[in-house]
Design a protein around this nucleic acid. Structure first.
Lengths: 152, 152
DNA sequence: CACAATTCAGTTGTGCACAACTCAGTTGAG
DNA sequence: CTCAACTGAGTTGTGCACAACTGAATTGTG
């Protein structure tokens, strides 16, 4: 195609910028969450797990991993820390001894109220409008799906 | 405001989705880069450093850190690994003995040609159009700037 | 029923992110 | 000129991501 050379050039520069900007954005988000979550004694990935449990308590490790795309190598120690912090309990499933069911403790459930204000603070911190946030989410979701399917 | 309640609800859900989608997108990108960069023996952050050096060789560690928003705690061991891999050399600056100047080796420079096809492959893997990529980059950059300025 | 294949949680090892710190070299105020 | 403040690189310790692995429990097939 006639536009290939120019388009390829654009892509080269763009990739470099996206490469940087995505990495930077991910870390910037993480940094702000770090600050916001410090009061609760949670890290960002731990917060993701708590969000999941606040929505559906009593999930097995596998299900949490599927929803958050995290494997046992990440979740096992993370959940151990949440257990030590007193926010969750772990017990083997009665139906399937291979599964470990994660349940919120009182303290873990109470944390929900304390965390209630976080999403709004974060959304405001991004400085984007609702529409822009929607667009961003859509693009990120699309990219993720495509990247997951891409076999190179 | 009259729309506050509804807007707050939207934001709650949206934050949860953005929270997930950004984390997922960041890891999806990282995963594909992992595959693509495996041939070169580079990780994604190492690739970012090499991109920087291919653009401007002979930078001090501090400057690389500023451009990539990485601190010495991350860069020092990373650069040590790149040195071990034979892609860079490190030497103290003559003008300022505190600085360590990073220089590409022959092998490090040769890698540039091997890496030439990566950006296009990545851009294609995202499955987005040029316009969409532009939009994504703009949103990410804006978000990063806002988050960095946000004091909570 | 028996056993091979699968599933699930956990461990190990490597690398990145970041806070808090050390230490050598440099700079600036008095 | 001197010494306190600052700067740059590096180290240490904690936590996450992920590949590769182990071992126990379960399932499916002959």
């Amino acid at each position: 195609m006639t536009t290939d050379t120019r388009a390829a050039g654009d892509l080269l520069r763009l990739d470099r910028q996206i490469c940087f900007s995505l990495h930077a954005a991910s870390r910037a988000f993480n940094g702000v969450y770090r600050t916001v979550l410090a009061d609760l004694g949670l890290t960002y990935p731990q917060y993701l797990v708590m969000l999941t449990l606040w929505e559906d308590d009593g999930l097995p490790v596998k299900e949490i991993g599927d929803r958050l795309r995290l494997d046992s190598g990440t979740l096992s120690p993370l959940l151990k820390r949440l257990e030590t912090a007193g926010y969750i309990t772990r017990r083997r499933s009665e139906h399937d001894e291979r599964s470990v069911v994660i349940t919120l403790t009182m303290a873990g459930d109470d944390l929900r109220a304390e965390a209630a204000g976080i999403p709004l603070r974060m959304a405001k911190a991004t400085g984007l409008t609702l529409d822009e946030l929607q667009t961003l989410r859509t693009l990120l979701t699309t990219v993720t799906e495509n990247l997951d399917e891409a076999d190179l």
